[in-house]
Design a protein around this nucleic acid. Structure first.
Lengths: 316, 316
DNA sequence: ATGATTGATGCACACTACGCATGAAACTCG
DNA sequence: CGAGTTTCATGCGTAGTGTGCATCAATCAT
């Protein structure tokens, strides 16, 4: 009925070391206790595993047959347990993170580099999806952490704002708007706009905000991915309204960003995790690194920083 | 340090059944105790395996990773333990028995048949060796029981006499001695004898006894195996001195056995086992069957029966 | 023969794990 | 929307189990 692993471990040690004293010492136990463990195990099984005189110990036929299996069982068990303990001590193990592409390009690489340096043994699986898919991946456990654009909060998830990212007007250096210090939404009326289609979370957010402010903007041209939109801007097709962070520093030197005002519309990038779900140590370590790196320093001046919240769930 | 298999088993059951109450019921435990087991395991490992709200239970990332291994460990352990318990209850398992050939032909087949009928699942490995090899096999644990000719007792072994077997003169029906009711050793002087070489335990015993009685017998022809000797007798080469039990009933109808007297020399067939060595249940069952069958009934009239001694070591 | 080593046993104690009763949170249903 | 039900967590007293100390018994070394 009850699984007497201690008895089996005792048996293995006695058999391996060939004596109760040595085995007792190895197990940090008195010889008395060890004797009793073996006796208990044998009584429970109803057969003898060890033939012992006062002078020597030998395996019985049954004991000899059982020993290899017993050894393997004990070894595997200790190894499993040790590995789990290491996971907590060293935060070892793999992490799966779901993330919106823009963040995957911009902020995350630095974090992943730092993480890889600190925990060389751990692998990071990065699921780059759109905003709703990120939320889904976290909800169903596919990823432990997610980074996406804040949307109506799902009850199963907790959010932790990382940074805010204002929408800006992207245009080429030779565009009339490129030299302005800012543009208002109303002023966009006469400009050829490149829109990003609805699959992105950005579009939903933007539409919602614009509707709230009764601003009507229509694009002349629509593309799937923000990066395509930038390519079109760079090619002189027109201007695009995109989150500031969409443009990687250094790339497309001919594209300018002009702040959009009245109102300033921001998307909020949030870190999400399952409510009431404990993070694995590996994920916890990543979480810590992420919040630490994305709060005090980093992030271009165009993105508004948010105060870091010590938002990590308490560990047991 | 300590292997908490109960905790792991608890974890497995909770994960499998998806709830503490169900798992507690399955483990014949209160929900309280189960909660504590999980808590203890998690505290020991330093990480959470189960995310539990008051309403539901879900695996953490670590828990999900650990579950398959944990399940396998618990299953293998229970299966091993159950098999060992079955071994004691049903006397299941294999038995190795070392035995001198003559007994292997004569008495043992009936015992093995009975054993096979009673324990169909058990296999019997029969090591047919000569007398000293039988003793060796038992001493080094190759066989749990041995049947051989009594020789100077080894201190590691205990003996249990099974039957006595007088040496007789084997001759063909047309041999001059074949009609005699008995022959004395002295009368063998003028007879062509077929001797069996020294490898057999019989020869050593016989030489020793003959020397003690100052009887000098030399064979004209020497063979290795008793069965060969009988074949030669049957072919009319001469007569042979062999233990009575050498001749299987029904075989060689032309060969007669004539009792040898002055003195009657007997070999004693003994059952041996390691001193202080507990028998496996399977071997114990065989032991019981053997002593029961070879004491009250059986054995031809020519072999002197010995009273059965209740010589089985006490089981725990 | 004597001392040393090794496994078994009697006994007392302490700790752990257990169950009961109860609390807190969350889902359900009228 | 509130009462009832379900489910996991916790405080507390208790019983049982495992443990160590001291000692015995058997065997080996010398």
């Amino acid at each position: 009925m009850k699984l007497d692993i201690d008895g089996i471990q005792a048996f293995v040690q006695v058999a391996k070391l060939g004596g109760f004293y040595k085995a007792a010492d190895r197990l940090n136990l008195s010889q008395t206790a060890l004797t009793r463990r073996i006796q208990k195990l044998e009584a429970y099984l109803g057969l003898r595993l060890l033939d012992r005189t006062t002078r020597s110990v030998a395996l019985t036929a049954v004991g000899r047959e059982f020993l290899p299996r017993a050894t393997r069982l004990v070894d595997e068990l200790t190894e499993s347990v040790d590995r789990l303990k290491d996971m907590s001590r060293w935060a070892s193990g793999d992490v799966a993170i779901a993330c919106v592409p823009s963040m995957a390009y911009q902020q995350l690489p630095a974090v992943i580099r730092a993480y890889a340096e600190k925990f060389p043994a751990n692998r990071v699986r990065l699921l780059d999806r759109n905003s709703t898919q990120v939320a889904d991946a976290v909800r169903n456990g596919e990823a432990e952490l997610g980074i996406h654009i804040r949307m109506r909060a799902h009850p199963e998830l907790t959010e932790h704002p990382l940074l805010q990212d204002p929408f800006m007007l992207f245009c080429r250096a030779d565009h009339p708007a490129s030299t302005l210090s800012h543009v208002t939404w109303k002023a966009l009326r006469g400009i050829d706009l490149i829109a990003v289609s609805g699959a992105s979370g950005n579009r939903a957010l933007l539409d919602h905000q614009l509707a709230r402010h009764k601003i009507d903007i229509r694009g002349r041209c629509e593309v799937e991915h923000p990066s395509t939109a930038i390519a079109l801007v760079s090619a002189g097709v027109g201007a695009a309204i995109l989150p500031s962070a969409t443009l990687l520093e250094g790339t497309h030197p001919d594209v300018r960003r002009v702040p959009l005002q009245e109102p300033v519309i921001r998307r909020t990038i949030v870190l999400i995790r399952r409510r009431n779900a404990a993070l694995s140590p590996a994920a916890q370590a990543f979480h810590d690194l992420l919040t630490r790196q994305l709060s005090p320093a980093a992030s271009p001046a165009l993105s508004t920083r948010l105060p870091a919240r010590a938002g990590r769930g308490k560990r047991l």
